[in-house]
Simulated assay, not measured.
Amino acid sequence: MVSGLEEIHLATIVLVLMAGFSAGWVDAVVGGGGLLQLPALLLVPGISPVQALATNKLGSIFGTTTSAVTYYRRVHPDLRTALPMAGVALVGSFGGAILAASLPSSVFKPVIVAALVAVAVFTALKPTVGTLTKLKHQGVRHHGTAAGIGLVIGFYDGLIGPGTGSFLIIAMVTLLGYSFLGASAKAKIVNMATNFGALMFFLPNGSILWGLGLLLGTANMAGGYLGSRMAVSRGSTFVRVVFLVVVGALILKLGYDVWIENLRPLVSAS
């Protein structure tokens, strides 16, 4: 069992740090950095899936916090929407993490793949969506919709995780009317809360590898800072393009998981 960095080869640490930096950049722009970071952690000899998940959340919270602060200083997102949404998402993430301990994620993955395909097709066919902020609702309806998005996607983040930032962005663009850049800025605040909610579950059971997690967090911070600055300077069109690339990668990754876990055994049996 891995208890500290002294048991991990230098090459593995370098690989994990490279993945952490890249994940921080991707997360800062559109989310989905877990596609890079979590598989890299699973390459660490002796690490358990729970340790990988917990350490991944520790590293990610450094990157999402850095991105959230950078976006706030440069974009000034509306905290009246983002903060209540983040609070509800934290509760949802904690609940999802509890359920994740007893329910296999393979139950949900086919539904998630279908949703991602629909999101990718919609975004590709609607090039003007998300270029400007045109809020669809005001007042109680706006905040109620935002809270619903936070609760559902926060729960998903605690339960499964990959693509949380991407789902937050597309939900805020399509259901609330934000631009891709504005949605990405708010998504970082919400994603920071969902990471913290999951950590609240993992902390008491000692699953976090602190040495590796803090190094990963440093790399994630650097990537998050660079990614958020690039997103702000290049605008919503840049965020939209990266969004489509990341969603495409998510579809391939989760689609492969569905094949391995659900479909291939059926084909082999027949």
Rank of each mutant, 00 (worst) to 15 (best):
T65D: 00
T65Q: 05
T66G: 14
T66N: 10
T66S: 15
S67M: 01
A68T: 00
Y71N: 04
Y71K: 04
Y72T: 15
R73V: 00
R73S: 02
R73M: 01
R74I: 02
R74F: 00
V75A: 02
H76M: 02
P77C: 02
P77Q: 04
L79S: 05
R80G: 08
T81V: 14
T81M: 14
A82K: 12
P84M: 00
M85F: 05
M85H: 04
M85N: 06
A86G: 10
A89L: 03
A89W: 12
L90R: 07
L90A: 13
L90N: 08
L90H: 06
L90V: 10
V91S: 11
S93K: 04
S93V: 05
S93A: 15
F94N: 05
G95V: 06
G95D: 04
G96K: 10
I98W: 14
L99C: 14
A100W: 01
S102E: 14
S102L: 09
L103A: 15
S106D: 12
F108K: 02
K109H: 08
K109G: 04
V111Q: 07
V111D: 06
I112V: 15
I112G: 07
V113Q: 15
V113S: 13
A114L: 10
A114V: 13
A115F: 13
V117T: 13
A118S: 12
V119Q: 12
F122K: 14
T123R: 13
A124N: 06
A124W: 12
L125Y: 10
L125V: 09
L125N: 09
K126Q: 08
K126G: 01
P127H: 00
V129D: 11
V129H: 11
V129G: 07
G130Y: 03
T131N: 05
L132R: 12
T133Y: 00
T133V: 08
K134R: 15
L135M: 11
L135E: 15
K136A: 02
Q138S: 13
Q138F: 03
G139A: 02
H143C: 01
H143Y: 12
G144I: 04
T145W: 09
A146P: 12
A147W: 07
G148K: 07
G148F: 02
G148N: 06
G150P: 12
V152M: 13
G154I: 09
Y156T: 12
Y156N: 13
D157F: 05
D157C: 07
D157K: 08
G158L: 08
G158N: 09
L159K: 08
L159M: 14
I160L: 13
G161T: 07
P162I: 04
P162Y: 08
G163E: 06
G163A: 11
T164M: 00
T164P: 09
G165Y: 05
G165S: 05
S166M: 10
S166R: 08
L168F: 15
I170G: 06
A171T: 09
V173C: 09
T174E: 08
T174G: 04
